[in-house]
Amino acid sequence: MRVLIAFFTLTLLGLPPGSSLAGPPVPGISEISGTIRGGEARVRFTLRNAFTPEMVEALKSGIEISFKITVEVERVYRRWFNRPMGQVRYTRSVRYDALSRVYRLHRDDGDELLADVLAALDRMTRFEVVVPVTGGVEKGKPYRARVRARLDKVGLSEPLRSIFFFSSLWDVETDWARGNLQAP
């Protein structure tokens, strides 16, 4: 038993120290803006550092990459709890069609074909999401949008899916980002 404990201790000590300190740029949500009016809020934001070079290469190799976006809208109170007004989960994916040599962007409202990877990446990182809200919207009052994005799935081909079923090739997930909405 003592030998086992020593073994596990040495194993833990043998881990490379600070391995998580110097990593790639952290993905995040920025430039959150929008308006809330009537029964909906229109939220715009940009997904930064979501695609690593490996992911871009995977995209070019025909691997489908999908992001799931969660957008929440809430009324902000200064001395009370914020009030949730609406939430939308939105999925956007992109896949390269080697036969027709186009990037097929799939959105909830339909597909879009893009000729090159830069256009595809641009479309995958710029969002404008409409969030249905409940409750009245008062002019000039503070409203806020909370956005989080994470890599939903990586569409591997069938044989590879059986190999990497239990592992995530890339782990992309942003923290919750907040931005104020205009209530004109």
Partner: peptide, 15 residues
Amino acid sequence: AYDEYHQVRLLDDPI
């Protein structure tokens, strides 16, 4: 097959 080939080539080490 073309897609699989490229994916395998890309994911050579993890495979």
